[in-house]
Nucleic acid binder design. Sequence first.
DNA 1: CCAATGCATATCCATATGGATATATGATGA
DNA 2: TCATCATATATCCATATGGATATGCATTGG
Lengths: 113, 113
Amino acid sequence: MARAATTTDAFNAVAEPRRREILDVLTQGERPVGELVEILGLVQPQVSRHLRVLREVGAVEVREEGRQRLYSLNPQALKPIHDWVSGYQHLWEERFELLDGVLAGLQQEDTQE
Amino acid sequence: MARAATTTDAFNAVAEPRRREILDVLTQGERPVGELVEILGLVQPQVSRHLRVLREVGAVEVREEGRQRLYSLNPQALKPIHDWVSGYQHLWEERFELLDGVLAGLQQEDTQE
DNA sequence: CCAATGCATATCCATATGGATATATGATGA
DNA sequence: TCATCATATATCCATATGGATATGCATTGG
């Protein structure tokens, strides 16, 4: 087989920088496709396809209004990514951890003595 | 063109679940390839290739010891992912707050009638 | 009712992927 | 030196990708 489909999960969907850009724009609020096209400087079919991928992994939602489709963010779809990567945060902030440990130790000594 | 190479950045590298698994294992400390093969239940060439991808994006480092290659984690390579996704955290937390608000409102209606 | 607008979808192409398997490389021990 | 172990690399295959372009399909304004 080939690489997992981009629509497999948020990790794959979000590996594409353009799709992250789209999400970033949508943090400002609902946007019609045309506006995303303008902002991103892509041709419309590409934006539509990126949006489809994002929709399939639940990262965006559509609302129809006349001939426009208004896309909005569904940030919870990104939670699994956050959950996973957060497990690593303390590793690059190890210094703080160590400091915390030291402080905890000192405090315990304090209370015990 | 095709999809961006898996070695393009941490986002692409980590989109593959096996590679996330490898990183997860390495949080426990340095491991030789053979051990990763055992733990993951993959054939050795695949593990080696995943490790290569992870190395190219800076997520792991190798140390040679005799005929073994000991791989260790370089968690900072994941920081860009954390940075990006963290910008969304308050959005899904906000949703709960909103929901709480709505529920509270409904409840108040109930009690008021 | 027709033309235009806003999007979605279909198709063509080049490419890198992950799985599988085979082989190369390099260190070690006898 | 030779066999073995640990790992890397090469190759073959099927597949989904993203870019580009063309087209389909509603909705709307005149």
